[in-house]
């Protein structure tokens, strides 16, 4: 790997989130570099989704720092910033419990992702001048190409609520990619998918990294997928980070084994 590819994109320092008495995320440090696929794993309730929510501005963290280093642009400290600001800066996400716009078509869902990269205003939309029409056309084309990439082009004009479950997950990814992020956060993208769909997802994620030059941080319970595609794995338990390393290191880490075995013993 060349030096430019190793540039750090996301730097999280001592991130903490309290809900009343509950510390859901406890001083987590984590970095994601360009060209990397990183995974965040841990038992149910470990605080992974809460970590995503803090990083993407859905929650305001109670402590710590979230720094974004867009390539060729100054570093930004984004804790407490609104989610739309963070997305516009170049970090997009999907949701664990799918949150599509169900009464819009599949294509329109992706077009929503283009909102922050386009700028037709009220007046432009009403007058529908040449610029507005061109931008609209570009939005449609961009969206359509993204749908092709995730294999949903044939459903473009369907309502998103009528999609099968696995397709919904892929649409979430396409919608997030429409915002042209440099870093993509995926919250359990394989949940509810069958093995074949998971394999396709595996390939899709690698393609996004290689062709789209987008770094990826994903939460996932499917260990096979995680071990397959991740460059680095971070393990959380009870809000704390208990391990970081390559898939092989994680596999052999006794703490991790205990965390997962402990969970199984509980369940």
């Amino acid at each position: 790997m060349s030096d430019t590819q190793k540039q750090v994109l996301l730097e999280v320092k001592g991130l903490t989130m309290d809900f009343g008495g509950l510390r859901a995320v406890d001083s987590i440090d984590l970095t994601v570099s360009a060209g990397e696929i990183a995974a965040l794993i841990g038992p149910n309730g470990a605080g992974k989704t809460t970590f995503f929510n803090c990083v993407t501005g859905i929650y305001t963290p109670t402590g710590g720092d979230v720094l974004l280093h867009p390539q060729g642009k100054p570093t930004r400290r984004v804790n407490g910033k609104k989610p739309n600001v963070i997305t516009t800066l170049g970090m997009a996400r999907t949701f664990q419990n799918i949150r599509l716009f169900s009464d819009m078509t599949v294509l329109e869902n992706v077009m929503i992702g283009r909102h922050c990269r386009t700028n037709t205003g009220l007046v432009g939309a009403i007058l529908r001048g040449a610029a507005a029409r061109r931008e609209e056309q570009e939005t449609v084309e961009f969206g359509y190409h993204l749908l092709e990439q995730v294999g949903l082009a044939e459903f473009a004009n369907e309502y998103s609520k009528n999609l099968p479950y696995g397709a919904m997950r892929r649409l979430e990814i396409a919608r997030a990619m429409a915002t042209e992020p440099f870093l993509l956060l995926l919250d359990e993208p394989a949940a509810g998918m069958n093995p074949q769909e998971t394999d396709e997802l595996d390939a899709l994620i690698c393609r996004i990294r290689d062709e789209g030059k987008i770094a990826i941080l994903l939460i996932e319970h499917d260990m096979k997928l995680v071990m397959n595609i991740s460059d680095n794995i971070h393990v959380m338990e009870y809000g704390k980070k208990i391990a970081t390393g390559t898939p092989q290191e994680i596999k052999d880490n006794p703490k991790v084994i205990e965390a997962y075995l402990g969970e199984e013993a509980d369940a």
Binding site: I58, N84, F101, M104, I112, H115, R175, T179
Partner: peptide
């Protein structure tokens, strides 16, 4: 239009809407 779609997205799901970069 771009604006109208943002309105509908807001109606459908506020959180997803802001997470997609729309200024609520």
């Amino acid at each position: 239009s771009r604006i109208g779609r943002a309105w509908i997205a807001l109606r459908e799901d506020e959180i997803a809407c802001v997470a997609m970069g729309i200024d609520m």
